[in-house]
Design a protein around this nucleic acid. Structure first.
Length: 278
DNA sequence: CGCATATCCTGACTGC
DNA sequence: TGCAGTCAGGATATGC
């Protein structure tokens, strides 16, 4: 479940070990990971290109290449991007794309559930982001998110607050886990109508979004028991140790005498405390 | 248009 | 123990 903190951790890894390298070859196996364009076109656009920049917007990675084109990667539900220094190391199961680099290392895309994807697009804007990512909303870390901006994004919406937080066209990067953790820290119920927050509540929410995501980036993301999230080097994150509500149904609230409950909101399970979230 | 729901997929878990 | 069935969720397509 890679969300903004996990993707940002991978981005930093790419900046450290892939930026500056030239792609010498690409192997695509499996049909789903490269689906917007033919694998042949992806290979042709990548071969010989030098990786110059590693950008991120929301949950998307955008690698700027030396001809102005961009390799876009989305990890979906279960995607991993692994940088392997020694290409004799065996491929993990569900490795769908292998990108060989000029120092003998490999960038490997592993994705059991195949919700992730990658594609190369010829253009990119001044911010390094291609038009395909133009519909994404504000990135709370890269762009900043003021409470005024947040108020205008939520105004008039009757959808559950949690659904609005997860709407990538409003705010880019928040998924199920961080939505619950943010709402707990803001002391707001996930089923509040998004447009119903008053000014202090909106300020609390904006601050909780920025704080929670920044802390999670610092902890290098969340690696759940069953989850497959690993950073570029294959290391787990540690923010799961600080989860206050996600996955804690029936356990004691960490802030009040209440118990964490679970309910379906917007088709997704939501964890929150009825004792201290209003 | 805004919002809800079904769909894709595999591994982990549940219950008999 | 084993096996069938359920659940999980990000983005997108479709329905109301």
């Amino acid at each position: 479940v890679p969300e903004l903190p996990e993707v940002e951790t991978v981005r930093r890894g790419l900046e450290a070990s892939v930026v500056g390298r030239t792609i010498t070859g690409v192997t695509v196996t499996g049909k789903r990971s490269v689906r917007r364009q033919s694998p042949a076109l992806l290979r042709a656009r990548l071969r010989g290109r030098r990786v110059e920049r590693a950008h991120r917007k929301g949950k998307y990675l955008a690698l700027g290449l030396d001809d102005g084109s961009t390799l876009v990667v989305h990890l979906g539900m279960s995607g991993q991007l692994l940088h392997v220094a020694d290409r004799s190391v065996a491929l993990a199961p569900h490795t769908h794309v292998v990108i060989r680099l000029d120092d003998g290392s490999e960038l490997r895309f592993v994705d059991p559930r195949t919700f992730g994807e990658m594609f190369v697009t010829p253009a990119a804007g001044d911010d390094g982001l291609p038009p395909e990512l133009g519909a994404l909303g504000v990135d709370p870390l890269a762009d900043g998110l003021t409470s005024r901006r947040l108020a205008s994004l939520l105004a008039g919406r009757r959808t559950p607050l949690k659904s609005a937080l997860m709407n990538q066209e409003l705010i880019a990067g928040i998924g199920n886990i961080y939505a619950d953790e943010i709402l707990f820290r803001a002391r707001l119920r996930p089923d509040r109508p998004a447009g119903s927050l008053d000014e202090p509540e909106t300020r609390r929410l904006a601050s909780a979004i920025r704080r929670t995501l920044a802390e999670a980036v610092e902890a290098r993301g969340s690696t759940l028991r069953d989850a497959r999230y690993r950073d570029l080097a294959g290391e787990a994150g540690s923010f799961q140790l600080r989860h206050a509500v996600y996955g804690r149904e029936g356990e004691r609230c960490r802030r009040c005498p209440g118990t964490v409950t679970r309910r379906r909101i917007g088709g997704r399970s939501a964890f929150f405390c009825e004792g201290c979230q209003f």
